[in-house]
Design a protein around this nucleic acid. Structure first.
Lengths: 184, 184
DNA sequence: TTGCATACTTACTAGTAGGTAAGTATTTTG
DNA sequence: CAAAATACTTACCTACTAGTAAGTATGCAA
């Protein structure tokens, strides 16, 4: 993959998180990279192709991160995940899932499938982490692990949304309370 | 307020929840209502004016709803709120806050202030409801009521987002677990 | 050295975006 | 009944959107 192509994906990722899929244009990418819009179309014929690539990139990144965390105790793995969100919060980014879920109805079929895949992957990992964590007595919660995973994911997702509106202390409150609840 | 103006706001509210602020255009409103785009500009000079009106409408609606619920026990008030979200889930709508928070960085200063107001109002009501509910032993939770309000709000907000991506059972799981946690 | 692939630029298109000025029909008011 | 406000339409504008066709410079391989 060319250097330019990497830069386009990286910038598109940022724009997606900040302005949403319908809130940025090829100009927002071509200008900062000193390219013409046709150069982006060369690498990504349609905007949806660029969207798919950004999600694929995120999918790969998430797989790598969780693999690196896998030898840690489950509560620390969760802390790592929260750390990823904290970083986004500092950058005034929202998470990809949150951004793309908002625009879901306006996305192409190919992008929708990728967004669904991203959601399923995150939930699958979280569910596994919670299950293992409860078994190892490092995490404590009631009900099904999959339901709890859903709640934690939505807490983190919207914590970034609300932090942008009401300030970063929203993220701190939520992430702190979240870990307190799980550590009992 | 004229009948047409009402219809414009109503449709804009729907479009905002389905396609996001940057995902709909004046044409999406003028065509279904058999109007010309200039008719919408007559009522709302700029798109941001329309956005502000939709939020004001929601603010008024929320104030009316919570007032009607105020004589109910706190757990039932919460059920009522969840009912509002359930209705949105069925209509494949997401909540206004979720939609506008995603597009926050692209909004005009006037719209941002209104979005912040909406967020503060919802949180203030939820915090009060939780505090009273704990005092009356109808609701049970640890930590500050304001932190818990934040978590419940983000759960509900993102439950609509994720329901659109992964199906309506997401909302059911979250809303059920949420009430279970609070009723102990 | 020729030929071909890569990575672009130049120059363009059709369509749509939000927005405006001026005109018109209808209703309301003095 | 005349003036004025209301609620639009007609006709337009500029800016921008994603997207394309054709041309060009560079490097690499046979």
């Amino acid at each position: 993959m060319s250097e330019t192509k990497d830069k386009i994906v990286e910038l598109a990722d940022h724009l997606l998180r900040v302005k949403g899929f319908n809130g940025f244009s090829y100009k927002d990418i071509s200008d900062p990279l000193s390219l013409k819009n046709a150069a982006i179309h060369y690498h990504f014929p349609a905007k949806a192709d660029l969207g798919v690539e950004v999600i694929d990139h995120e999918l790969t990144k998430f797989a790598g991160q969780t693999k690196r965390w896998q030898s840690l105790p489950e509560d620390e793995q969760l802390e790592k995940l929260i750390g990823v969100f904290r970083k986004h919060c500092q950058d005034k980014n929202i998470c990809l899932m949150g951004s793309l879920a908002s625009d879901f109805e306006t996305l192409s079929p190919e992008m929708r499938v990728k967004v669904q895949e991203l959601g399923k992957r995150i939930l699958a990992w979280l569910t596994g982490c919670l299950e293992q964590g409860r078994h190892n007595k490092r995490l404590h919660f009631k009900g099904e692990a999959s339901d709890r995973a859903l709640m934690i994911m939505t807490n983190l997702q919207s914590s970034l949304l609300m932090s942008r509106v009401l300030g970063p202390q929203v993220f701190n409150s939520i992430s702190t309370q979240l870990m307190k609840d799980l550590k009992k």
